[in-house]
């Protein structure tokens, strides 16, 4: 493919998506450059989660195009496994594998999917555990960890695949206020290291601090976008103003 680093790593153009007769995305376009952190905010049901699930082909789309590193995601001939090796995803409900320990959860995909050497993967997994500050929890099962700890294992599990882009789907929405912070710190460090991140979030303070660009979606379209400073302090569209007025 002819993708170069000066082109957007994720490019979404005029995407339409419906569930049956319900149109969830009505022509959404946005670009993410390498190393950029973008946050998608908006009211419930506005299509935020659907949009990022489309990026790694968990949902299909009816019209438009999504490319990752120049490769069309919704091409029927696409090797989905190849795409998903490049795109990591973290879910609201963590979705760790309950029959495996934290360390095994992290090691599984690199060993089984990428066929990497087990000892080498284990060394890397231990570094990742340290990075998300869970030393000593290597052999704990997900059921024995708190929500925040599980979510950090889930982040480490995604990172173990060395993805080029990370998608975060409301990763703190199921956590209590104290553990939210642990997870946000982890994501912030990741962003600072230059990882390309697409986040759907309700944490406005965090979005403002960490994002390079904010997108506001409502009823399936992007209503307004801009860098955090202009977006939060100088919103133009009345819907954005109303939304920000309700939650800030």
């Amino acid at each position: 493919m002819s993708w170069t680093k000066d082109q957007p790593i994720v490019s979404i153009k005029n995407v339409h998506k419906s569930f049956g007769s319900l149109e969830v995305l009505k022509g959404v376009s946005l670009d993410v450059m390498k190393g950029e952190v973008i946050c998608i905010i908006g009211p419930s049901g506005s299509g935020k989660s659907t949009l990022i699930r489309c990026i790694n082909a968990l949902n299909d789309i009816q019209d438009g195009s999504i490319t990752v590193e120049g490769q069309e995601v919704h091409d029927p001939n696409l090797d989905q496994l190849e795409l998903r090796k490049k795109v990591g995803m973290v879910f609201q409900q963590y979705n760790l594998f309950p029959h495996k320990t934290a360390l095994q959860n992290i090691m599984m995909a690199p060993v089984l999917v990428l066929k990497q050497d087990k000892a080498e993967v284990e060394a890397r997994a231990r570094v990742l555990i340290k990075k998300v500050r869970l030393e000593g929890k290597e052999d704990s099962y997900p059921g024995e960890l708190s929500g925040g700890q599980q979510q950090r294992v889930a982040i480490a599990r995604s990172l173990a695949m060395n993805p080029d882009v990370m998608l975060f789907d409301e990763v703190t929405a199921a956590l209590d206020p104290e553990t939210v912070k642990e997870v946000l710190v982890t994501i912030k460090e990741l962003a600072a290291e230059g990882m390309t991140c697409v986040l759907v979030t309700h944490e406005m303070g965090f979005a403002r601090e960490v994002a390079d660009h904010i997108y506001f979606t409502d009823r399936g379209v992007i209503v307004e976008h801009g860098p955090p400073a202009t977006f939060f302090d100088d919103a133009k569209d009345p819907r954005t103003v109303e939304f920000l007025g309700q939650i800030l």
Partner: peptide, 25 residues
Amino acid sequence: TAQWEASESLAFSRRQTLFRIILPQ
């Protein structure tokens, strides 16, 4: 189904997902 999605997003094939993730549970 979230378990299927999680392993799909880690690039596990359908067969691997079934035999390594779902059936052991």
